[in-house]
Design a protein around this nucleic acid. Sequence first.
DNA 1: TTTCATTTGTAGCCTTGACTACATAAGGTG
DNA 2: CACCTTATGTAGTCAAGGCTACAAATGAAA
Lengths: 154, 154
Amino acid sequence: MKAQKNIPLRIRRTKPVPASGAGTAVIQQITRAAHSQERAQDYVETIADLIVEHGEARAIDLAKAFGVTHVTVIRTVQRLQRDGLVNTRPYRSIFLTEAGSRLAVQAKARHRVVLEFLMALGVPEGVAKVDAEGIEHHVSPETLEAFQRVLSGA
Amino acid sequence: MKAQKNIPLRIRRTKPVPASGAGTAVIQQITRAAHSQERAQDYVETIADLIVEHGEARAIDLAKAFGVTHVTVIRTVQRLQRDGLVNTRPYRSIFLTEAGSRLAVQAKARHRVVLEFLMALGVPEGVAKVDAEGIEHHVSPETLEAFQRVLSGA
DNA sequence: TTTCATTTGTAGCCTTGACTACATAAGGTG
DNA sequence: CACCTTATGTAGTCAAGGCTACAAATGAAA
Ligand SMILES: [Mn+2]
Ligand SMILES: [Mn+2]
Ligand SMILES: [Mn+2]
Ligand SMILES: [Mn+2]
């Protein structure tokens, strides 16, 4: 309250915002786009894991893996199906499409590199797992390559 | 289609899912929690920058910085105010609260370390800026320290 | 002082991704 | 086969975070 006592009204600037601001919007937009694909990547990756481990991926297993209700899983899977990443029919288990498989392979490989990179830096495994789960989706090919360089000791 | 011709029905497992799945839910939940704070961090950081650069932070500047409409900014700022991070009154500019200032300082410092770390690894600046914008929110104190170790050449 | 471009605000809509409560299908067990 | 637990599906709600369209306030310039 008291901090706003004598605050002047906004000052109109005719001139455009200085150069510093140029391009920041694009960065933010790219980041938002990356965000919108996180769930898809995590889901196809987990579905692939479940198929390897149990021979099939069921909604309830995904719910347990993500810590959400089965309803959330079912609705998310419907979106993935709409987007051509999985196939599923009522009361059947969930299968990856070709596109879904490719995405899963890529996501899994990248995730592994990020995790191993963090652990190579000395980050404790538990913490590294948490950080990698979020970081993975924002690692560009260039950054991934840099991480791999470090891992291969080059 | 043809891939699902002879697909067996789901197999019921009485036994709980193997150990591999234990704990993954918690990791995902922590990551979701981190996500829910990204906007707040980016906003207070940008608001602090605008105040330094222009003496004030206006909704329209935030809209330009983030590449969204002013309506989105106004509604987001309302949430930030509800959460005690900013103060603003109708037609006035936006101010950080004490809590907002502290968060801005922390977020900015972490963001800077992440960006410099990526560039130290040889990632081109433009790419590093994009990656850092997303990665910063998923960097734990332990990982941040590891990044700083690398930067200080230790 | 009046005007008018700029800025801010409001109303209403949408998608994503979360939830609870309840309904129905599947399929193992007795 | 019938039963009953488990899994899946449906209905309805909510908040965050986007948007467009329109309305009102601000303040610089005429
Ligand atoms: Mn992953
Ligand atoms: Mn992830
Ligand atoms: Mn930031
Ligand atoms: Mn950011």
